[in-house]
């Protein structure tokens, strides 16, 4: 109990003696872990977007405005094994759908003198991976003017997602390295400022682990506190970002469940704890080992 009491008091002494440095370390940790958390959330959202788009199994084949053309394309489409259903959407139906989607703005459509929308055949494939093959088959038909399907967008998004993931990995490594370096130096300054005290502690019979423990606790506290505060910041800023994006880009599908921030937060706190622990242990043990080595 006496030992524990001493260690806690000593850790507090370390934190308060270099309060400015401790504050700076926490601020740096908050900035770093916020950056890491934001990158992770960005990657997760990009992946979610890709998955959502990929999951769309519909191919829209726009056809010349004739019933014969519509029938030919529909018949051809249903003949493929990988197609589960085919639906003919006439120009009139397309206009109705548009009105329904526009809601209050639907009155604007009435101002149009004639229907500008082309008829189309809506092809539903059994699996997302069949979409590209079927789309390529359909576009070769002379009756088909244009084919639109999610796979094309998904491919482009996939490329962006891969790039973002790589970039995030770089951000992650650089940020964590900076946090580690700042923590390492903070602890090292603390150790050097007390080198006399440490040599006395060792001389009166304190074990190395006893000497090192308050520094490790200091590192763990600074790292964890920095990460925890960054999670708090991330929670509020993610909420704000969602609200803003939902308003300005309503079609964008994002991870709206904010529990995701807590999951990412748990990882960040664990990372903060580990970085704090490893860095402080390295900084303190190196010095203490050297101080306790006999000449």
């Amino acid at each position: 109990m006496g030992t524990f009491r001493y260690m806690i008091r000593d850790t507090w002494r370390l934190l308060s003696r270099h309060s400015g440095l401790s504050f700076l370390t926490i601020v740096t940790s908050v900035a770093v872990f916020f950056l890491v958390g934001a990158s992770i959330l960005f990657v997760l959202n990009t992946r979610y977007l890709v998955e959502t788009v990929e999951g769309d199994l519909t191919i829209q084949a726009y056809v010349q405005n004739s019933e014969e053309a519509l029938e030919t394309v529909a018949r051809k489409a249903i003949s493929y094994d990988s197609v589960s259903s085919v639906k003919v959407v006439t120009a009139k139906e397309a206009l109705e759908r548009l009105k329904a989607r526009l809601g209050k703005l639907a009155e604007a459509v009435a101002l149009l003198e004639e229907n500008p929308l082309p008829p189309s055949v809506e092809v539903q494939v059994k699996k997302a991976s069949f979409a590209t093959v079927i789309a390529r088959e359909l576009i070769t038909m002379p009756e088909v003017e244009e084919v639109v399907y999610a796979g094309d967008i998904a491919e482009r998004l996939q490329k962006i997602s891969r790039f973002v993931s790589r970039l995030s990995m770089v951000v992650l490594v650089v940020s964590l390295a900076s946090a580690a370096l700042v923590l390492f130096n903070t602890i090292r300054i603390g150790v050097y400022a007390r080198k006399d005290e440490i040599s006395k502690m060792l001389l009166v019979g304190a074990s190395r682990s006893f000497v090192i423990f308050p520094y490790v606790l200091q590192g763990v506290l600074l790292g964890t506190l920095g990460a925890a505060l960054s999670v708090l910041l991330l929670w509020f800023s993610y909420g704000m970002a969602l609200t803003t994006l939902e308003r300005s880009l309503p079609f964008l599908r994002l991870l709206t469940d904010r529990l995701i921030v807590l999951r990412v937060g748990a990882v960040l706190v664990l990372a903060g704890l580990s970085v704090g622990w490893i860095c402080s242990w390295l900084a303190a043990s190196r010095f203490v080992r050297r101080a306790s080595r006999s000449m």
Binding site: M1, G2, T3, R5, Y6, V204, G205, F210
Partner: peptide, 13 residues
């Protein structure tokens, strides 16, 4: 201090 660093209980210190 010298007692605490070797783990002597608080009351004994």
């Amino acid at each position: 201090f010298v007692q605490e660093v070797i783990g002597v209980p608080f009351q004994s210190v």
